[in-house]
Amino acid sequence: MTALVGEAAAADETASLKGGRMAAEKALAAIDPIAYAASRNHLDGAVTRLSPYLRHGILSLDEVRNHALASVADPRQAEKFIQELAWRDYWQRIYLVHPDRIWNDVESYKTGFEASEYDSELPADAVDGRTGVACIDQFIAMLYETGYLHNHARMYLAAYVVHWRRVRWQAGAVWFLEHLLDADPASNNLSWQWVASTFSKKPYIFNLDNVAKYTGHDINTRMADNRVLALSYERLGELLFPNLEPAHG
């Protein structure tokens, strides 16, 4: 029951993400860069949910940064928060200079597989949120119900789709674009590429321990309900990327 109440409260909080400058200013007034730096990795951390307002230019990066700096005694206290703003500036610069990178692989996959070995469509069970992996299905439900996902949940879903289900990142990117309130082709697609390893040195993967570390009681992290995630990184690497040489050292 507690978990259900928690889920409802989280959904309500996000459901209150309304469009408009007034709602944006209210969200901006509530940010706490110091708490953000300390807890942002956790699903129940002090994340700001400003991204839909930034995506649509309702707030500018400049004014959000200025507000953050004004709320701390030393600029370094807001550095982690401002660095996250900088990610958006970075993605937008790539979008302008290299628009071809938004839908094409920037680099080859570093997974031991060719792009042609990945499916081009999302599996139906993922679209339906019925993969049978409990935490993954909960994240998919959150995506559909709220139009918002914590960054870790986005990375977990992206990694699951690309590496566990071996689906091209482009299919997942479209899925997120259609459902996220802050959907931005540059931030979204290049982040998918980062997870896939077509825009990073290695594929991003996670395991159940990691999910349990960063999520609260609302997320089902029981081993019996998440078997395919309940493995060591070494074992996952062997299973997901069998063509790669094992890492040494």
Binding site: L17, K18, G19, P52, H56, E178, L181, A183
Partner: peptide, 19 residues
């Protein structure tokens, strides 16, 4: 073409109403 879903369209419409 940009895959703007129904939820985002509502968000944009709410913003436009205020503008």
């Amino acid at each position: 073409a940009g895959h703007v879903g129904a939820r985002r369209q509502l968000f944009i419409a709410e913003t436009l109403a205020e503008l």
